[in-house]
Write a protein that binds this DNA or RNA. Structure first.
Length: 836
RNA sequence: GCCGGGAUGGCGGAAUUGGUAGACGCAAGGGACUUAAAAUCCCUCGCUCUGUAUGGAGCAUGCCGGUUCAAGUCCGGCUCCCGGCACCA
């Protein structure tokens, strides 16, 4: 009789749900464990990437449950977002209805996979009982100055018709639709994530349970650099230019300055000069160029403004340029240029024939050369170095200072400190820190998101909606035409009264970035029905931080950084009292087929539904976990799935044998040698599976060892006592149950157990039983494997060596040779080194 | 360019602190059962040479070198692939 997975899987899914076996216990003496998977956007179709994520999580959840943890394992939906709105435009369906339908089909698919969530805690971010708290938190942030509005150049996606946060621009393109973004000057809402830049950076240290690459990515994204801000006076003008440098040791080597094209001072400088037109044309050219060729490496280009600045340390006059390689967004938008010690400046100087002044020499050259050459000044040209050394590139390493007045002769590293001190002392600049991290732009000009709870009043300005008026609900009198934000055309939504002065006012029509929704959903799971606060402090204090978070690497900066920021900001609002949301993070690899990520356009998509239909959830789960370790990419193979299907069926058939075995093997003794061997293997398998799951989540090797156990069991079947056989099958089924829960429940029942296997305790192993009397030792001669000997573990080293030497296979290699030495690694290997 | 990660049979992947390379699975080949197919079961399976006493010898973990009795694992130098960042002053 073959295994009817369809009936069995449905049966147990119903049973689990009916018995509420996955319900979270609120009060428990057990140790808590919060296991979380990144919740999905409800697109309506579960793809293999989702399935992999959840199967990894679910297997862990079942493992931890059986190991006696009080588990929180929830699921929800990141339900706001563009696809729903686009569907509304296309199919003339309400986005909410569309989303709800998608959630239902997705949930059904998840249930079919046998995932053991506590569905009572489901969080749907698009529901007013959730987004109300988004708004509530926004107003708290607003009160604290963490939410603010400003006019700024934004990343605008022309296809999605909305702005994007910096983190959502990947390679100059929209993260969602891959359209090249444009720069648009707009007044928008921001969250002040930069206020937490330093803490976000420092606390990365503490995230020891995170993959190193994610920590590095976050560190780079925050991009801290410490340096010096210096004011350079402009010649014949009362003005000064502020620049930022991380290399104060090169201050004496400055031979020109360069402004970003967008720098406001540039136009002021050239106004009413003969350079005006030339410079303006240049600026226009590169502003356009910048937008088009954002990614390609451009040749350095610039133009002289006709103006000079004064190096405040040397008094030297230095020309001011406008250049295409200076960023307005970073530092001050103007830089001092030291061609001798910066490769970009070097290239620029060579191109425009600007002097190169060397102020740092490599240690080796500084030592060998005769008394310090101080003649390298503005008259020196790049291609005519004073001491004959060819200058083919900038020297950016540390070295010995020269041409730097009182700092000559010291190490440049030391000079950084001394010159910084000197600059501060002279009050021409000060030490500063810059970050690459920008504030988080949360405004979106779309309908299907959390309305930003702000009212604009002529008299009172931007006023937050008071708590008792929250939530600001999304209106229904809207049309989805695809043009502009529907909210801005909804009269019922826009028109309102000022909460302060009650005069006719206008409501903010921007909605929030959906990453706001996902920045605290994991806290809501701890207290999903709470209606006084986003969540109670008591409950989050019990469950948070998340003990194990599982998700894709694509959120390494986006979601994971925002969530960290939120946690810190909510902590400062006294809503919670921990610093980091996720203790351990597992980033699973992609699911690929024929070498590519599964996608519709590649036509290599394998449907989850179809897999379950064809082979059942247990087989699908087993394959997903068996094919590769979780952090690596998973190469989909239909044949591989079939192999797992075979294994499931083999286990099923073996379990059917149990009754027959009782009659057949009546005379087999439980303490016979074979039973002892199998008992040793049983213990070994428990140990292997337990450690593999727990330590590195290496499900693939855990499953392999279960298969080995099966193979041995089936081959010894006829000589095992009924008791041994039964104990072994029970162990095997328990060990297999986190991976393939349905069939294991069914077999468990078949073995006359009345409880669910879920409530069964995870087995333990006995070290004593792992010991063997006899062991195989590999024997090498001069490091080459020449034979194997079976020895009693009680033998001494000398006895083993003697035994090896008398072995027929070994003999011929050591015959007539002088034994130089022997190396014996206890119970493993013996190496006999011979000479001659 | 910089920063990560990786490279092991035909394939996915295993290999404690350096200690029998290739576990487990897939594919392939051979056989059994069957009218046949599917399913199932049994055997073989890194490469080369040698050979039939069903054994033997050599070579093998991207490449080149080193350390060691012993290297997939450690050290030095490369090559290629994947990911992230990218004029960040």
């Amino acid at each position: 009789m073959s295994y009817d997975f369809k009936t069995v899987e449905k049966k147990w899914q119903k049973y689990w749900e009916y018995k509420k076996l996955f319900k979270t216990e609120e009060k428990s003496d057990k140790k808590k464990f919060y296991l979380l998977e990144m919740f999905p956007y409800p697109s309506g179709k579960l793809h293999m990437g989702h399935a992999r994520n959840y199967v990894i999580g679910d297997t862990l959840s079942r493992f931890f449950r059986m190991n006696g943890y009080n588990l929180l394992y929830p699921m929800g939906y990141d339900a706001f977002g563009l696809p729903a709105e686009n569907a509304a435009i296309k199919n003339k369906i309400n986005p909410e209805k569309w989303t709800d339908e998608c959630i239902n089909t997705m949930m059904e698919q998840q249930k079919k996979l046998g995932l053991s969530y506590d569905w009572d805690r489901m969080v749907v971010t698009a529901k007013p009982d959730y987004y109300k708290w988004n708004q509530w938190i926004f107003t708290k942030f607003f009160d604290k100055g963490l939410a603010y509005k400003k006019k700024a150049p934004t990343n605008f996606c022309p296809k999605d018709q909305t702005v994007l946060a910096n983190e959502q621009v990947i390679d100059g393109k929209c993260w969602r639709c891959q359209t090249t973004v444009e720069v648009k000057e707009l007044e928008q809402w921001f969250y002040k994530i930069t206020e937490y830049a330093e803490e976000l950076l420092n606390d990365i240290e503490k995230l020891t349970g995170w993959p190193e690459r994610v920590r590095i990515m976050q560190r780079n994204w925050i991009g801290k650099s410490e340096g010096l801000s210096v004011n350079f006076p402009i010649k014949d003008s009362g003005k000064k230019i502020e620049i930022f440098t991380t290399r104060p040791d090169t201050l004496y080597g400055v031979t020109f300055m360069t402004f970003a094209a967008e720098h406001p001072l540039v136009l002021e400088l050239v106004n009413n000069t003969e350079k005006e037109k030339e410079v303006k044309d240049f600026i226009n050219k590169i502003v356009i160029q910048k937008r088009i060729t954002r990614l390609e490496e451009k040749e350095k280009e610039g133009i002289f403004t006709g103006k000079y600045a004064i190096n405040p340390l040397t008094g030297d006059e230095i020309p001011i340029y406008v250049g295409n390689f200076v960023l307005m967004e970073y530092g001050t938008g103007a830089i001092m240029c030291v061609p001798a010690h910066d490769q970009r400046d070097f290239e620029f100087a060579k191109k425009y024939n600007i002097p190169i002044k060397e102020v740092i020499q490599p240690q080796s050259i500084a030592q060998s050369s005769t008394p310090m050459n101080t003649g390298r000044d503005l008259s020196q040209r790049a291609d005519t170095p004073s001491d004959g050394r060819p200058l083919s590139s900038a020297y950016v390493e540390e070295g010995i200072m020269l041409n730097s007045q009182q700092f000559n002769g010291i190490n440049s590293k030391e000079a950084i400190i001394k010159i910084s001190d000197y600059v501060e002392e002279k009050k021409i600049g000060k030490r500063v820190v810059h970050y690459k991290l920008r504030d988080w732009l949360i405004s979106r000009q779309r309908y299907w998101g959390t309305p930003i709870p702000i009212i604009y009043c002529e008299k009172c300005g931007a006023v937050p909606v008071p708590e008792n008026e929250l939530p600001v609900l999304l209106p229904n009198d809207v049309e989805f035409t695809g043009e502009g934000n529907p909210l801005s055309k909804s009269a019922s939504f826009i028109n309102c009264k000022c909460p302060k002065c009650n005069s006719e006012s206008r409501r903010e029509t921007d909605t929030m970035d959906t990453f706001v929704d996902s920045s605290w959903y994991f806290e809501r799971y701890c207290d999903p029905k709470q209606d006084k606060f986003p969540f109670s402090k008591e409950k989050v204090s019990y469950w948070m931080p998340v003990d194990q978070y599982i998700g894709g690497i694509e959120h390494a900066v986006l979601h994971l950084l925002y969530s960290r920021f939120y946690t810190k900001a909510l902590r400062d609002l006294k809503l919670l009292d921990y610093n980091e949301p996720f203790n351990n993070l597992l980033c699973q690899g992609m699911v690929v087929k024929d070498g590519f990520k599964m996608s519709k356009s590649k036509g290599n998509v394998v449907s989850v539904d179809e897999m379950i239909d064809l082979y059942g959830a247990d087989t699908a789960r087993l394959f997903i976990l068996f094919a590769s370790p979780p952090e690596r990419d998973l190469e989909w193979s239909d044949e591989g799935v079939h192999g797992c299907f075979r294994f499931i069926n083999k286990v099923w058939n073996m379990a059917q044998n149990i009754k027959q075995c009782k009659i057949q093997n009546a005379e087999c003794k439980i303490d016979g040698e074979i039973n002892k061997d199998i008992e040793r293997l049983r213990n070994f398998t428990i140990k292997k599976v337990t450690i593999d799951i727990q330590k590195e989540f290496h499900f693939n090797t855990a499953i392999a060892s279960i298969m080995e156990f099966y193979n041995e069991l089936i081959s010894k079947q006829s000589s095992l006592s009924h008791e041994s056989f039964k104990i072994c099958i029970e162990t095997l089924v328990i060990l297999l149950s986190p991976f393939a829960p349905h069939i294991c429940e069914e077999i468990w029942q078949l073995l006359d157990h009345s409880n669910s296997i879920i409530s069964e305790k995870w087995p333990t192993w006995c070290e004593e039983k792992l010991k063997q009397n006899e062991i195989t030792i590999a024997v090498q001669v001069n490091g080459k494997l020449r034979g194997q000997i079976d020895v009693n573990i009680g033998l001494s080293e000398q006895e083993i060596i003697g035994f090896a030497k008398s072995n027929e296979k070994i003999k011929k290699y050591i015959l007539d040779k002088k034994i130089i030495k022997t190396i014996y690694v206890p119970l493993k290997i013996l190496n006999i080194v011979v000479g001659g």
